[in-house]
Amino acid sequence: MLTTVVEKLKAQFPNSILGVREFRGETTVHVKKEDILNVCAFLRNDEAGLFNYCSDICGADAYTPENRFEIIYNLYSLSYKHRIRLKVFVDEADLHCPSVISVWPGANWPERETYDMFGIIFDGHDDLRRMYMPEEFEYFPLRKDFPMMGVPDSIPLPRK
C-alpha cells in the first residue's frame, strides 16, 4: 500500500521529493521545504494515502553549517492504519517554514512546540506563541548550543 503512495507522490511532485528511505518497515520521505504544504495536502486527500491524522511534528538540530535543523512530520492514516514520515531541512540563515495547520488543525500545538524548542518560524500559523517556556524567554532550549543548565538569570525567580 505504502509503495503505491510513494510512487504517486513521486509522480505528482517530481522536483520536490529529495529522497526516500526505507528502514525496518518505516518509510521516510525528504521533501523540499517550499513544497511541504502541497505534499501534506496531497497525502491527506489522496485515495491511496489518506493520512488524515498528524500524530506529531517535532524538530531536530544536527548542528551542521548547512541544513542545521530538520522538521519531522509523523503521519498516520486512521483508515488504512499505515504511517509515513516526512522530513524537511531548515537552514539556520532562513528559519521560516510553511505551516500545515490548514491541512491538519491539530498541527497547531506541535508546531508551537517546535517553535518553542528550536525557534523555527512557521509561516501561516495563526497563534505562534511559546508552548512550555515563559513568553519572555529569549532562547531555544533544544538547540545544541544551549547549555543544559540554562542561561543564569534568564528566567526570573520570585524574590526571597
Binding site: 512550555y132 547549555p147 543544559m148 542561561v151 525567580l157 526571597k160
Partner: peptide
C-alpha cells in the same frame, strides 16, 4: 538537573 527546574525551592522560599 536541567534548565527548566528550580534546583531547590529554598532559592525563593524559607
Amino acid at each position: 538537573r536541567t534548565y527548566s527546574v528550580v534546583q531547590g525551592i529554598d532559592q525563593f522560599l524559607p
